[in-house]
């Protein structure tokens, strides 16, 4: 079995129904020398093209065939690794600086992954060192306050950042330049939840903070990136005051499309001076719902 992507459409690991397979006995009695076979295919394999759900898996007795057990195990392993793999700060920093952007590394108040998972409140607050670093950087700021500050945060999937963060920024930067938006330093944040961006944006004096964060990994989407926009970020903002663009990844929402939606939302936010439910209401159905994804 290959260790490639878990469920590509062209190799989904599902058994192909053999013409003889339907009528063959599921197993043979002991004493019979013929080779035994326990797997029964489902003769509606063609339906699998209609959904990413795991249908027509076949069965061994009533249980999952071996191949399916192993494929599921691989998908779960990838999702688990996405949660527990530390953010590769050097690689992410390099990729972002290559785009001509300044970076700043900070940590939340959660000191490690187990604490981060148990204490979402700590992931929403800056560490003392992180706050000091941001304050120092804000003090050195001589140009006008930035329109947009990006925070690149591990969230629940560092894999999402490794795969998508720099490409997402690269897709959006030309649009930011075209519209004359001042982009502040990109803050790379570890053990971070969405609300950490509020304090970051507040210290840096950003008009709008855009959090690029690893979403809760699904079995079929371990590297999904979420974008959260908050106007006038400050501690205590509620999730209803944000807008979210979800499921940015290869096989999900593409970078160009996400960049276009981000631009649309940012224009509305900077013009109306708000984000969240009211921005969605102002934009009608063209805008994504505010924070419809599971709580990060």
């Amino acid at each position: 079995m290959s260790a490639g992507p878990v469920r590509p459409a062209e190799d989904d690991g599902r058994p192909v129904t053999s013409p003889a397979g339907e009528d063959r006995p599921a197993c043979v009695l002991s004493g019979d020398a013929r080779p035994v076979s326990g797997m029964q295919a489902d003769p509606w394999h063609d339906l699998a093209a209609a959904t990413p759900a795991r249908i027509a898996l076949g069965r061994s007795g009533g249980s999952l065939p071996t191949r399916q057990v192993l494929d599921f195990g691989l998908a779960h392993a990838r999702a688990r690794d996405a949660v527990h793999t530390p953010l590769d700060v050097a690689a992410v920093t390099k990729a972002i600086e290559t785009l001509g952007l300044e970076t700043l590394l900070i940590d939340s108040a959660a000191p490690d992954r187990p604490t981060y998972l148990r204490r979402p409140d700590q992931g929403r607050r800056l560490s003392a060192a992180g706050r000091a670093a941001l304050t120092a950087r804000a003090g050195a700021e001589i140009e006008p306050a930035p329109d947009i500050v990006f925070v690149v945060a591990d969230g629940l999937s560092a894999a999402a950042i490794h795969a998508n963060a720099a490409a997402m920024l690269a897709a959006f930067l030309p649009e930011a330049r075209r519209r004359g938006w001042r982009v502040g330093p990109v803050v790379i944040a570890r053990q971070a939840r969405v609300a950490l961006g509020d304090e970051v944006g507040e210290i840096l004096g950003a008009r709008l903070v855009v959090m690029l964060i690893g979403e809760r990994p699904g079995l079929s989407s371990p590297d999904s990136l979420g974008l959260y926009l908050t106007f006038a970020p400050k501690r205590g903002r509620s999730d209803a005051e944000r807008n979210c663009i979800s499921n940015v990844r290869s096989g999900g929402l593409g970078f160009a499309e996400a960049a276009a939606t981000l631009s649309f939302l940012a224009q509305g936010a900077l013009r109306l001076g708000l984000t969240g439910v009211k921005l969605k209401d102002a934009g009608g159905d063209a805008l994504p719902a505010p924070d419809a994804s599971p709580v990060l």
Binding site: R54, I55, L57, S220, S221, P294
Partner: peptide
């Protein structure tokens, strides 16, 4: 299907 909810993750 397959214990994997592809909508709710």
């Amino acid at each position: 299907p397959g214990a994997d909810d592809v909508m709710l993750n």
